[in-house]
Structures are given as C-alpha cells and as structure tokens.
C-alpha cells in the first residue's frame, strides 16, 4: 500500500541567473511500513525533500500524496492539522520547547489537537523511550540523547502515517546514535511505522530497508525497495 507518492516534485530558490534548483522533478513512492534512508552530499536537496514531504515547506511544482491526501493542495490550516495528525518530524537539534516539560513536549501534537491525553499511552511510550522518570523534567535537564528520544516520542505519539527524521543522530555521540536508530527500527518493526530518515552515516543508511541517494535535486540511486 502506497503511503507516500511524490510526482514531479520541484523546488527552486531565487530567479534568473541566481536561480537554484533544490529539487528537480523528484518522483518517489514509499510503501507503508518501509524504513527508508535518504543520503546525499550537503546541498543535494534531501532536507528540502523532507520538508516538503512533511508539509513544512512548499513545493514550486509537483505533488505530494500522503495516504492519498494531496498535501500540496491543502490550505495552511488544513496542512497544520494534517501535519499534527499524520506526520511525525524528528530534527537534528531536537526542537523541543524549553519551557514545556518532557511530558508536555511528548504530547504536544495531542494537546494542540485539543484531545485528551491517554495516560497509559504516555506511560507506555515513555517506558519504551526510557523516559519514565524524566516526564516532569524540562528539556534543559536532559542529555542530548534523552532529548532526541523525547523528540522521537513526540513524532510517534499520534501514530502518524509517516515519520520523517532529518539527521536524527547528527548531534549525538555513537552510543546515543545507536540507541536512537534502534528505537526508530523498533517502532518500524513492531508497529509498522513508516520512517524516512536523512543521514550522512553510511552504517546507519545500510541498516535501512531501502536506500535513496539524492544529488543535485534528483534521485540517483534507489536500492532495496519492496517493489
């Protein structure tokens, strides 16, 4: 079952002589439950692809279909609600809100949605992430690895259609990196969560089900897919 499909996705910056093509007609399909690693040199367009797929940036041309919804056709409010419910984003620098507790950061998408927080669900996910005794702490009281685990929990709390991780280990030491990847893998295998992850680490990329390489805004390699 196709969970993501991009059709002729383009993104350009600037105009005239200074125009830069960040994405140049990317066609990509991801099946539900896949664990995809996206690699490529700096400036190749992989983060741009991730942001457009995640609905946090807009495409210059082309379409993004997530679970059959054309994300590029949604207005700002609908897109925010879609992002809240269907997308989980994990960033290199965690992007936790420093004045909210771990628990509040974890449940932020639910709280924004005005939904009642299921305590059991929170405890369950905190346990899986090893954060049970840290729920009332502020992000500044956690280590980098712990902060990234909170970020993973926040991305997964809503059981989104797609989890997008932008270099989730880029700011972590090797032990914490292994732990984070292992967690993502675990959620992918046990819950069938689709994960698309950008990484520079060849080792981490090799552990993915599928490897996509992007250069100059184009997909130049796509290996190991479930096709």
């Amino acid at each position: 079952m196709k969970i993501l499909e991009t059709i002729g996705l383009c993104k350009t910056y600037g105009s005239g002589d200074t125009m830069v093509k960040a994405l140049d007609g990317v066609d990509l399909t991801v099946e539900k439950g896949e664990f995809v690693a996206v690699v490529g040199p700096s400036g190749s367009g992989k983060s741009t692809l991730m942001h457009i797929v995640g609905g946090v940036d807009s495409a210059s041309d082309g379409k993004v279909l997530i679970d059959s919804t054309d994300v590029t056709a949604l207005d700002e409010t609908a897109l925010a609600i879609f992002r809240r419910r269907q997308i989980g984003l994990i960033y290199q620098f965690y992007n936790l809100i420093p004045i909210l507790t771990v628990e509040e950061n974890l449940t932020l998408p639910l709280l924004l949605d005005g939904r009642k927080v299921d305590r059991r669900q929170v405890e369950n996910i905190a346990e899986r992430l090893g954060l049970t005794d840290r729920l009332k702490h502020l992000p500044s009281q956690l280590s980098g690895g712990q902060q990234q685990r909170v970020s993973i929990g926040r991305a997964l709390i809503n059981n989104p259609a797609l989890v997008l991780a932008d270099e989730p280990t880029g700011n972590l030491d090797s032990e914490n990196s292994r732990e984070v990847i292992s967690l993502l893998r675990q959620f992918n295998r046990e819950l069938g969560q689709t994960v698309i992850m950008i990484t520079h680490d060849e080792g981490i990329a090799a552990s993915a089900d599928r490897l996509i390489e992007i250069r100059d805004g184009r997909i130049v390699r796509d290996e190991g897919g479930r096709i």
Binding site: G54, V56, E76, T77, A80, I81, F82, R83, R84, R85, I87, L89, Y91, N95, L96, I97, I99, L108, P109, L112, D113, R154
Partner: peptide
C-alpha cells in the same frame, strides 16, 4: 522560534 516549533508539530495560524 517556539512558534515555529509549534507550527512544525501542527499548530494552526489561529493557535
């Protein structure tokens, strides 16, 4: 920046 973070996890313009 907080508002940007909130937006990334689905806060609407109205919120």
């Amino acid at each position: 920046k907080y508002l940007g973070m909130l937006a990334s996890v689905g806060a609407t313009g109205r919120q």
